[in-house]
Write a protein that binds this DNA or RNA. Structure first.
Lengths: 213, 213
DNA sequence: GACGCTCTGTGAACAGCGTTCAAAATACCG
DNA sequence: CGGTATTTTGAACGCTGTTCACAGAGCGTC
């Protein structure tokens, strides 16, 4: 009848995810988790070092699912024979936007989560997940025939990802009018269109002395 | 000897700004403010409804200063006779990046600040400040001779701003290696270069049926 | 000066939070 | 079954934001 330690951890994470989605980071409370999981507060701390670790674990689950969603979208396009780079990038962006819209409460918590701890400065599992997301975008860029070496393509992928990310988060920080979703998508379309056109015409890396910071 | 109500409010805000910059949102504590301002906790609540209002006021001061910094940068370029749009946009972006770097602690707090309250849905002073920032960017875009009407130019300004914003925040969420600042700037340069080139070649608004979300 | 009135400043008190840890309960094993 | 190791527990600690009954300061009037 008793749940495995691992099973109970997943139960806690499932509860935590709901709590985060309903009320943001401030709604993640040890006593609430314990009550809903049918255990005591102390047991929660037996499974996780602190609430930060719970929050981190939920975030990693979300990032992982987002990556899977993006890959699935790419596979769908492949199956349909779509090879146009702009279409594929837009599909990736759409997957991202939809994912954020599907997690209105917990996504801000993912972004605001400050994982600055005394932990080793080296890359951890969190960074690995983010890198995986970047790699998906870089893979799509590779299909396009821009004159980019690996290093520059990686930079372009991060830039593109971060830009979409910024558009989505800026849009969601603003007042949540229903037309907001429409404008977010318009901005993403503009960005992707301009980005692809700019890369095609060598707009990137075409200057060397403008840096002043 | 006693300070005016307004003066004391500003003193509180100055203290709050330091606290936020030193330790983020979690470091903004009523008792600390009261102690450093030489008043009691109750008096803090006499000046501000709650800590959220203090945080909001600090954020608005920062946004206001950021706008002033951007305008000053534009004025500098004007004085030097620089009219190139790409240069001007890069200068704006540089102002933004430098401002964020100058406020490493409080800027994440600005971004993470969730101003979702039961307040009226209409635009408030917070939105007005953000709009002012957008308008500055839109003004720069107006100088460039792209075929954009006011509406599309405003959209492009928001897109550009949000993208830079995303690059900066993504970079700062990542591990704070010192080389991070360098990559942030590389991404900004790439984005601006591609953006301008893309607009010149009509990459924006050149598609109508790709929307699928 | 003394009174009444208003208004502001005060800080003890309250509810709630994350987290700990001695003790109780349970599980395991010879 | 006895003894030991492990897990679970929840009261307790220190901290938080916020409140509110009260003390005191200012002020016009008699």
């Amino acid at each position: 009848m008793a749940l495995d330690k691992e099973e109970m951890s997943e139960k806690v994470l499932a509860i935590a995810e709901v709590l985060l989605n309903e009320g943001g980071a401030g709604n993640l409370k040890a006593r609430t988790i314990a009550e809903q999981a049918g255990i005591s507060v102390g047991s929660v701390y037996n499974l996780f070092a602190d609430l930060d670790e719970v929050h981190r674990a939920v975030n990693m689950r979300l990032l992982d699912r987002l990556g899977a969603t993006g890959l699935a979208a790419m596979a769908d396009l492949e199956r349909q024979g779509v090879t146009d780079v702009q279409h594929r990038i837009l599909a990736m962006a759409a997957a991202y936007v939809q994912f954020v819209e599907a997690h209105p409460g917990s996504w801000p918590a993912v972004l605001a989560f400050n994982r600055r701890r005394a932990t080793r400065p080296g890359p951890d599992a969190y960074d690995a997940l983010l890198d995986a997301l970047f790699d998906i975008v870089a893979g799509v860029l590779k299909a396009g025939d821009f004159g980019l070496d690996d290093k520059r393509r990686a930079l372009a992928a991060r830039t593109l990802w971060s830009s979409v990310h910024g558009i989505v988060t800026s849009g969601y920080v603003a007042n949540s009018d229903s037309r907001q979703a429409e404008e977010i998508w318009q901005q993403v379309e503009l960005l992707v269109g301009v980005f692809v056109k700019g890369l095609e015409h060598g707009g990137a890396f075409a200057h060397a002395e403008t840096k002043s910071a």
